[in-house]
Design a protein around this nucleic acid. Sequence first.
DNA 1: GGCAAACATTGATGAACGTCAATATCGGGG
DNA 2: CCCCGATATTGACGTTCATCAATGTTTGCC
Lengths: 115, 115
Amino acid sequence: MTSLPLLEPATDTGCCPPAVPSLGAAEANDRAAVFKALADPNRLRLLSIVKSAQGGEACVCDLTDPLDLTQPTVSHHLKILVDAGLLHREKRGTWAYFSLVPGALDRAAGLLVNL
Amino acid sequence: MTSLPLLEPATDTGCCPPAVPSLGAAEANDRAAVFKALADPNRLRLLSIVKSAQGGEACVCDLTDPLDLTQPTVSHHLKILVDAGLLHREKRGTWAYFSLVPGALDRAAGLLVNL
DNA sequence: GGCAAACATTGATGAACGTCAATATCGGGG
DNA sequence: CCCCGATATTGACGTTCATCAATGTTTGCC
């Protein structure tokens, strides 16, 4: 849970001069972890709602209703997105506000283009 | 098996003037399907190998060894990537050659940036 | 201090997934 | 025509995942 897959410097498993720069196993695992977090329609909607929310942030109570999910399920999805380095959680009082990690979506997109 | 999630024109579920343009349920499902195909380290490595292969294409026999998977498993992963609209399959003789669908990775990246 | 609201965690359950062994299909050569 | 090599399909098995109900934890307020 302490890893931030999006921030890794793209190291290769092989040594020396890479003849064919195809993805190594470790790197592939890290990148797949990011896409795993994105591979759920409800999590995509969560990201979309947070992104288009006024002020760029939303609390759990704002996210439960439009998704038609229970509060524990929404909390679970948000945790996955936070662990993947896509969302940032800030607790203010009783509420937990979630916002997009700046540049995280662009970095994830970069993982795709620079495969 | 006939759907091509990547080629959809991003229609919204709501009607009329979209007050908050957050992702609809149907659109979220289609996009999640693409990321589901990308949410496996071995499939990412398959895409990477095909992309960096000479001529931009590779057959199954070229893909089985570097992934340390059995041939049926590699075929299974390739089918998922083809169904997601990311890979193109062309059968020449006994061999099946796989190549990246032009622009598919960029479109997938676009799904992320334009959430 | 104690209650209520917001959020997180736990446990359980059914579905989806990745993998392999075995088998089937298809194409080329002798 | 039959065999062989390359790929696809099927069936089974263990794991992971999404979801919910129930409960725990923290914070603000009276």
